[in-house]
Amino acid sequence: MNTPVRIGVLGTHSTSKTTLLKRIEMELRGHGLAVARTGRLAKRAVGVGLPKMQHHTEMSTEWIIAQGIADEIACAAQGTHVVLADRAAPDALAYYFAALEFRGEHAEPMAMERLRLLAATQYAKYDLLLATVLDPSVPVDQGHDYDARFRALVDQHVHALLEDEKLDHLRVTSHSRSTAAAIQRAVEIGLKGVAA
C-alpha cells in the first residue's frame, strides 16, 4: 500500500475551509485520483460529550487530535491517493490556545507539552498545509452564533503556531486569486505525489 499525499487545512471557523477542500477534491477527482476527506471533528466531539469552540479543554483537544489522526489513517488504509484533512493536527492546538486566552486561563505546563508533542507527531506527514486567513469584512452565516473575539483569537493562534513550529504552509485569503493558487498548488502536489 502506497503512502497517500496528505493535504491539511486549518484556520478559524467560517473561513471557507470545507469549501476549499471540496473544490480541491473535485479537481483531483477530475484527474482520476482517489480522494478521501476527513472532517466534522468538533461536531463529533460534542456527540461524545466534549466541549467545543471557546469551551475547549485539554480533553477535547486531545480527542480531536487523536480522532483526526485515526481518520487520516483510515482514509490511507482504503488505498486513496490523496487524503484531505479538514482541520489538520495543529488546528486543534490553536483552538485550545485561543479558548484559554478567551477565558483568561492557563494550561498546566505538562499537559500543554503533551498536547504539543501529540500534534507534532503528525507535522511531517503533511505534504501541504493550507491556512485560511480571517477576513472580518466577509459576513458570517447568521445561523451561527459565533463570538467575534474568539474567532479572531483562533485566527491569531493558528498563524502564530504555524510560525512558532516553523511549519511550511500556504496562506489562503478570501480573494479568489489566493483560493485559485491554493487549489492549483494542491492539485500539483497531489499529481506529483501519485506519480512518484
Rank of each mutant, 00 (worst) to 15 (best):
K43G: 01
R44T: 01
R44P: 00
R44G: 00
A45N: 06
A45M: 04
V46P: 04
G47E: 00
G49Q: 05
L50N: 10
L50C: 07
K52L: 02
K52I: 01
M53S: 14
H55P: 07
T57V: 00
T57Y: 06
S60K: 05
E62H: 11
E62Q: 15
E62S: 07
W63F: 12
W63K: 10
I64M: 15
I65F: 08
A66K: 15
G68D: 13
A70C: 03
A70I: 03
A70Q: 14
A70Y: 10
D71P: 02
A74Q: 13
A74I: 01
A74P: 10
C75D: 08
A76R: 12
Q78V: 01
Q78L: 07
Q78D: 10
T80K: 08
V82D: 09
L84K: 14
A85Q: 10
A85Y: 08
A85C: 07
D86S: 02
D86T: 03
A88W: 12
A88D: 06
P90E: 05
P90L: 02
Y95E: 07
Y95A: 00
Y95T: 02
Y96Q: 03
F97N: 11
F97Y: 15
A98S: 09
A99T: 00
E101T: 05
G104W: 12
E105T: 02
P109Q: 05
M110R: 13
A111G: 11
A111R: 15
R114V: 01
R114P: 03
R114K: 14
L115K: 10
L115G: 05
R116S: 03
L118H: 13
A119F: 06
A120T: 05
A120D: 08
Q122R: 14
Q122A: 05
Q122H: 09
Y123R: 13
Y123P: 04
A124G: 11
A124T: 04
Y126L: 03
D127V: 00
L128P: 07
L128M: 05
L129C: 08
L130D: 04
L130E: 06
L130P: 11
A131W: 09
A131R: 10
V133A: 13
L134H: 15
D135N: 14
D135L: 00
D135R: 07
P136L: 04
V138F: 11
D141N: 15
D141S: 06
H144L: 04
D145R: 15
Y146W: 14
R149L: 11
R149F: 06
R149K: 15
R151G: 01
A152G: 10
A152N: 13
L153V: 02
L153S: 08
D155P: 05
Q156R: 15
H157W: 12
H157F: 04
V158W: 07
V158P: 13
L162D: 08
L162S: 11
L162W: 11
E163T: 13
D164M: 07
D164R: 15
D164N: 11
E165P: 08
E165G: 00
K166F: 09
K166R: 13
D168E: 15
H169Y: 04
H169A: 03
R171F: 03
R171W: 06
V172G: 06
T173F: 08
T173Y: 12
S174Y: 09
H175K: 12
S176C: 10
